[in-house]
Write a protein that binds this DNA or RNA. Structure first.
Lengths: 129, 129
DNA sequence: TCTGTAATTGAAAGAATTTTTCAATTAGCG
DNA sequence: CGCTAATTGAAAAATTCTTTCAATTACAGA
């Protein structure tokens, strides 16, 4: 999985530096991390490099940036999924099954070409009820 | 509409100051404004007061904060709607018809109590195609 | 394997955004 | 109309992200 990402970098003409792979490894350890959480997992890498690597991985489609109300978070893009955010404890969980009904999308009719979408569900998780 | 919001403020024990109503009026003029756009519409109101008013209106459910990738934006909560964001020109349009199929939501089964959701659709608008 | 070079790194400075502090002002109750 | 707790805003601080630039390094080609 990391190999695939590293290949994508090299394929794009970018160097696979130790710093970049360290950030990648950090991202692979847990989803939805804040910048400081990522930084804590790759202590040797400078702040600026982390930012730049996240940008690069974002452009390559390897990483996605989230903004769920409490600042920026980052996750490996991997498979299509959505987020369920508990308003009580802040826990973020993922679900794969996409509840979007494409036939209900009125946008194509209005000449808007849909490329992607993101869906966030807010509520209370099992533990908090 | 502004009256309703002002009533909600007073009902919550908050004062309806000229600054707060000025921010409300600014918000009513256009959806998805950045902080500076809002500020430009109520020049007499101090920066801190704008931030605090947006917080307050958010707590009261009158205003919603968005984060669509280019920093914070604010909109009157009003009716349930979603956003279509053009990746080319950045234009944000709204659509009311919710394409969520509730029967596909697998969350209730996992004891997650859904309270609300937000859906953003990314792509290219008619003008940019 | 070695070398040259363009890409990359990171410290420091800067910019942008949001929050805190606190003294002065004011909305609205009685 | 006066009192008081809530509100305001200027200044300073905190936080978050970006730019700059000299030093370092990955890796393509010899």
């Amino acid at each position: 999985m990391l190999e695939a990402a590293i290949g994508k970098m090299r394929g794009g003409g970018y160097k696979a530096t130790p710093q970049r792979t360290a950030v990648l490894r950090a991202l692979a350890e847990e989803q939805h991390q804040s910048l400081e959480e990522i930084r804590a997992r790759c202590p040797g890498v400078g702040l600026v490099t982390v930012y730049r690597t996240l940008d690069l991985l974002g452009e390559l489609g390897i990483v996605r940036r989230l903004d769920l109300g409490d600042g920026a978070r980052y996750e490996m893009a991997e498979d299509h999924h959505h987020h369920a955010i508990c308003e009580s404890c802040g826990d973020i969980s993922e679900f794969e099954k996409c509840p979007l009904d494409p036939t209900l999308l009125p946008l194509e009719a209005s000449d808007f070409e849909v490329r992607s979408h993101s869906l966030e569900v807010y509520g209370r998780c099992a533990a908090c009820r």
